[in-house]
Design a protein around this nucleic acid. Structure first.
Lengths: 137, 137
DNA sequence: TCTGCAACCCGTAGCCACTACGGGATCAAG
DNA sequence: CTTGATCCCGTAGTGGCTACGGGTTGCAGA
């Protein structure tokens, strides 16, 4: 009978796709994952298509895409659509955001690093450089 | 009579310290800013000490410190404490977090940039590289 | 002095993407 | 058949604000 593989519990699905169990239910609530079949007792039963979709979602999240972007990407991944241009628009926009955040964070890092190191070698006599920066008139 | 400067309305305080008006009230609610005096009619009245404190908070936020860290820094900035070591501990921990996020984001940027550029020059024939990455078995 | 309207008041809800909690039901192994 | 792991659901909390709405106050100009 070839055995199992089909008929995943939510726990197994979560483990196999690397997503928190509660998050799976959350994704169902917000319509990112389809409502699965249930056992007689009401437990969710998933199949491999669910697993693939959820893995897609996890990868998208790991790449920093927001939920709405992932919703779009999922639609664009449907056979029939598959427009590389549209995918590119979403991914390109995200890349620009990532780069903007990266630049912000890099500026931050420089300032913090300078101040902290001034603090560590606090030859800089009277006051704490970190506090001075925060208090600067 | 030397005139104004003292007796800031919440709106002026917000404008002068570069913080949103609603955020000022929020900071009061969470105890980050002290409750100011009120006019007979109930409007908040701030002074220069409030302005300095709020500016401190804004600078801290701009440097990416969390509210609790700023609470700590404010305490450490009180005359009498002013321990550079304690300040350094907070700022150093934050710097480490910033560097960790920076590293994460940099990794992300590389992956996204590669995939997007593979997508743009899509000599890579059959499928969209972005979707392939998300779907990879 | 009166009027008009900007600025203020307060409480509550919404944002993002989860995570946690609690009390009860179900499932599967022994 | 019992036990204990797993699952159910709804709700609330996280951080750090921002927005809304309906009402009150403050102040400048006429």
């Amino acid at each position: 009978m070839m055995v199992a593989a089909r008929g995943l519990t939510i726990g197994r699905l979560a483990a196999q796709s690397g997503v928190n169990l509660e998050t799976v239910r959350y994704y169902e609530r917000i319509g990112l994952m389809p409502a699965p079949d249930r056992t007689a007792g009401g437990h969710r039963v998933y199949d491999q298509a669910h697993r693939r979709r959820l893995t897609f979602v996890r990868r998208g999240r790991e790449l920093g895409f927001g939920i709405e972007a992932i919703r779009t990407l999922l639609a664009l991944a449907e056979p029939g659509h598959r427009s590389c241009d549209d995918v590119l628009a979403v991914a390109g926009a995200h890349l620009r955001e990532v780069r903007a955040k990266l630049a912000d964070l890099a500026r931050l890092e420089v300032i913090l690093a300078q101040t902290v190191s001034a603090c560590e070698s606090h030859a800089s006599a009277p006051a704490c450089p970190v506090l001075e920066m925060l208090e600067a008139a």
